[in-house]
Design a binder for these strands. Structure first.
Ligand SMILES: [Mn+2]
Ligand SMILES: [Mn+2]
Ligand SMILES: [Zn+2]
Ligand SMILES: [Zn+2]
Lengths: 141, 141
DNA sequence: CCTTTATTGATAACGGTTCTCAATAGTAAC
DNA sequence: GTTACTATTGAGAACCGTTATCAATAAAGG
């Protein structure tokens, strides 16, 4: 039995992490790491870009925030509020407005399709892109 | 009226394009541009990497082949055979085996969700990932 | 053939993301 | 408060898939 007890430190909370969370809470659309870094800078919250990348990734892993890939393949993050469970997104490709949606319909469908084909441990990611009412209006003057 | 007739050349078929198609026809899973380039090399079909990227992209635009993004964000291509219309994929994340699936269920659901929220010009991409029967068997010895 | 110009390919450039590693700063123990 | 430990940070390099460059090549049509 060693004199030194085993260490128990698991996690440390830092100024940078709170800053990133603060920005996330103020968003109602998905944003990239770089955009979030820019928003931090604008708020005079100095956080290194690498830290932003790392922190967002970690938060997404823990499912504290949501992550999606834009059409162009960029990773985007958002804190989807109230909602703690499995859900999907309806995203305006013009302004980024994001609406959280859920429905047993696709859940059932994907499960059925997977089962019919002998697949197990299935996961899916369904995000719908379109033009929101507002943006539609703007483009037709 | 000009002396020179207007040119009508739209497209030229090349050795490289046929080579790429040849490889595509031999696949039953999605492959990246780099993988396809490697397969070409293995077959002693010399095609530049840039050409592979360009050609796959062009074919995907014309919807002659299918394109998806892997979980890691890499662009993958496949010739999905017989099927010319809108469809989805059930993909084994172990071996890449890909099964083409369709169903009005999600089509209706996405349309409904979009309409309910005032979105127009909606598009969706639904790919389901899981473990196929074969790979499941292998992992349980 | 000859002309026109789409296509190719080696390579550089690009953009998002991850890695490196020394400096910084939470945390628990003293 | 001080100390010891080490998670976390940050500036920049490295990475990796992809796209842009641009001179050389080679289809298509006459
Ligand atoms: Mn779902
Ligand atoms: Mn569909
Ligand atoms: Zn919008
Ligand atoms: Zn499999």
């Amino acid at each position: 039995m060693p004199l030194k007890e085993e260490k128990k430190i698991v996690e440390r909370s830092t100024r940078q992490q709170s800053a990133i969370l603060e920005v996330l809470y103020g968003l109602d659309e998905f944003r990239s790491a770089q955009e979030i870094h820019a928003l931090l800078t604008k708020k005079n919250l100095k956080v290194g870009l690498a830290t932003v990348y790392r922190t967002l990734q970690k938060m997404a892993e823990k499912e504290d925030i949501d992550a999606i890939k834009s059409i162009e393949g960029e990773r985007l993050y958002r804190h989807c509020g109230q909602n703690d469970g499995h859900h999907h997104h309806l995203i305006c490709s013009k302004c980024g407005l994001t609406i959280t949606v859920e429905g047993p319909a696709i859940e059932n469908w994907t499960d059925k399709v997977a089962k019919e084909n002998g697949f197990s441990e299935v996961s899916h990611k369904v995000d719908i892109y379109g033009i929101c009412k507002n943006c539609k209006k703007k483009s037709k003057p």
